[in-house]
Computed example of a mutant assay.
Amino acid sequence: MMGRIRKIMKEDILDAAERVVMKLGAAGLSIDAVAQEAGVSKSTVVYDHKSKSALLEAVIDRRIAQEQEREREMIAAAADTPHPELFGRIKCAERLSNDVERAVAMAISASVPNEEMLQQQMRDWTLADLQAMSDGPRPQAALLSYLALCGFYFTEMLGFHQWNPEEQKTILEGLRKVYTSFPEE
């Protein structure tokens, strides 16, 4: 029973950390702010996350794991498409991002230059995606569509532009067409 309470508390603290990041940005994240947001003592936060950096790392790790799980689900659901790895990733982008996801994405982008482990994690994720594009059918078409998808996704996640649902649908359908119509050599 105690393990379950501890796990819930860890998740509550990470939820509170995400809310702090959403309100104040990565720079405003602190052990004190998270403790106050979660309604727990500072020592409770420090017990699991020894520093601001460790807390931010835990928030980012959780968000990346959630995104990778959603990606795996969409890839499995795209099994009957011309390129499940690509089409599954495109399907992931159909879901509109929320304020918390955009705030965490901004925190990730702000943290990457200073955190070697995060840089490596992002490189590994990117290399896995690139490998998935090259391992499937029509690798050049898949790569071009994937790179365009990254541009679309990061433009939105980093808050540079928010596409309305109709624009989003048109763009993502266009990425599917790029893949199916690109002349493979």
Rank of each mutant, 00 (worst) to 15 (best):
Arg63His: 11
Leu130Gly: 08
Leu96Phe: 11
Gln131Val: 13
Thr44Cys: 07
Arg72Ala: 14
Leu143Met: 15
Asn98Gln: 10
Asp129Leu: 12
Tyr153Thr: 12
Ala128Thr: 14
Pro84Gly: 08
Arg63Gly: 00
Ala35Ser: 05
Arg63Val: 02
Leu118Phe: 03
Gly39Leu: 09
Asp135Tyr: 14
Arg102Asp: 01
Leu24Ser: 10
Thr155Cys: 03
Glu156Cys: 05
Glu71Asn: 06
Ala132Ser: 09
Glu115Thr: 14
Met133Asn: 04
Phe160Gln: 07
Trp125Val: 06
Val112Thr: 08
Ala142Lys: 03
Ser109Leu: 08
Lys42Met: 05
Leu29Gln: 06
Ala54Gln: 12
Leu29Pro: 04
Glu85Ile: 04
Gln36Ile: 14
Asp99Leu: 01
Ala107Lys: 02
Leu149Asn: 06
Leu118Arg: 01
Ser51Val: 02
Leu149Cys: 09
Ala58Pro: 03
Gln120Gly: 07
Leu147Lys: 07
Ile75Leu: 12
Asp32Met: 07
Glu116Val: 15
Arg62Ile: 01
Lys52His: 04
Gln140Lys: 10
Asp129Met: 14
Arg70Ala: 13
Thr44Gln: 08
Met106Ala: 15
Leu127Phe: 13
Leu55Pro: 08
Val104Asn: 00
Val20Ser: 14
Gln119Asp: 03
Gln131Pro: 06
Glu115Arg: 15
Leu158Asn: 06
Asp99Ile: 01
Leu118Asp: 03
Ala54Phe: 07
Lys52Gly: 04
Ala93Met: 12
Lys91Asp: 12
Gly136Ile: 00
Thr126Ser: 11
Ala27Trp: 14
Asn114Cys: 05
Ala77Asn: 00
Phe87Glu: 01
Tyr47Met: 12
Trp125Asp: 04
Leu96Tyr: 11
Asn114Gln: 13
Ile60Leu: 04
Gly136Thr: 04
Ile64Thr: 11
Met133Pro: 10
Met22Gly: 13
Ser111Pro: 09
Ala65Glu: 15
Leu86Cys: 01
Ser111Gly: 13
Arg102Gln: 02
Lys91Gly: 09
Gly39Tyr: 07
Pro139Leu: 04
Leu144Tyr: 15
Cys92Arg: 05
Pro139Thr: 07
Ala110Leu: 07
Met122Ser: 10
Glu94Ser: 08
Tyr153Pro: 00
Ile64Val: 08
Gln121Val: 14
Ile60Pro: 00
Ser43Val: 15
Thr155Arg: 09
Asn98Cys: 15
Gln162Glu: 15
Pro82Ser: 00
Glu101Val: 01
Leu86Tyr: 03
Leu130Pro: 10
Pro137Lys: 10
Val46Phe: 13
Met133Val: 09
Arg138Met: 06
Leu130Arg: 06
Pro113Met: 04
Glu116Gln: 11
Gln36Arg: 15
Glu71His: 13
Ala33Arg: 06
Glu73Thr: 12
Glu57Tyr: 11
Ala128Ile: 10
Glu57Gln: 13
Gln131Met: 11
Ile75Phe: 13
Ser145Arg: 02
Thr155Met: 05
Ser43His: 08
Met122Lys: 09
Leu143Asn: 08
Met122Gly: 07
Glu156Tyr: 05
Ala93Leu: 09
